[in-house]
Lab assay of single mutants.
Amino acid sequence: YKIYPYDSLIVTNSISVKLPKDVDRTRLERHLSPEEFQEVFGMSIEEFDRLALWKRNDLKKKALLF
């Protein structure tokens, strides 16, 4: 996945969300650098992957990456 800054990946309720063209809309968190991922989620990507799907989705919603 290509890395993008968190600010360019957050999704708000506005209709005209302009995400970069090559971003996987269903896995926005994968486009964060490991350092920024840790900062946003408070855990590593590996720890995040071990969580239940509902928990990952809940965290993504709170981080505006859903």
Rank of each mutant, 00 (worst) to 15 (best):
Y1P: 12
Y1C: 09
Y1L: 12
Y1I: 12
K2M: 08
I3W: 07
I3E: 06
Y4K: 02
Y4R: 01
Y4A: 02
P5T: 07
Y6V: 03
D7N: 14
D7G: 12
D7V: 15
S8F: 15
S8V: 14
S8P: 00
L9A: 00
L9R: 00
L9N: 00
I10H: 04
V11M: 10
V11A: 08
V11F: 09
V11P: 07
V11W: 08
V11T: 12
V11D: 06
T12I: 14
T12Q: 10
T12H: 13
T12S: 13
N13F: 05
N13P: 11
S14C: 13
I15D: 15
I15L: 14
I15C: 15
S16N: 14
V17T: 14
V17E: 15
V17Y: 04
V17Q: 15
K18W: 08
L19I: 08
P20Y: 04
P20V: 03
D22K: 03
V23A: 06
D24S: 04
D24W: 05
D24H: 07
R25N: 07
T26H: 14
T26Q: 13
R27G: 05
R27Q: 12
L28N: 01
E29V: 00
E29M: 00
R30L: 07
R30E: 03
H31Y: 11
H31T: 01
H31D: 01
H31L: 03
L32H: 00
L32E: 00
L32T: 00
S33D: 07
E35P: 09
E35L: 11
E36W: 03
E36A: 08
E36Y: 02
F37E: 00
F37T: 02
Q38P: 04
E39S: 13
E39P: 03
V40C: 06
V40E: 02
F41L: 05
F41C: 01
M43S: 03
M43T: 04
S44W: 07
S44P: 13
I45N: 08
E46P: 08
E46V: 14
E47W: 07
E47R: 08
E47Y: 09
E47H: 10
F48A: 00
F48Q: 00
F48R: 00
R50V: 12
R50H: 10
R50K: 14
R50F: 08
R50Y: 08
L51W: 02
L51Q: 07
L51V: 05
A52L: 08
A52R: 08
A52H: 11
L53F: 10
L53V: 12
L53G: 09
W54N: 14
W54D: 14
W54M: 08
W54K: 10
W54T: 13
W54S: 13
K55C: 09
R56S: 04
N57C: 09
N57Y: 07
N57P: 00
D58Q: 11
L59R: 03
K60Q: 02
K60R: 07
K60H: 02
K61L: 08
K61M: 09
K61F: 08
K62P: 02
A63F: 07
A63H: 10
A63V: 11
L65S: 00
F66G: 07
F66P: 05
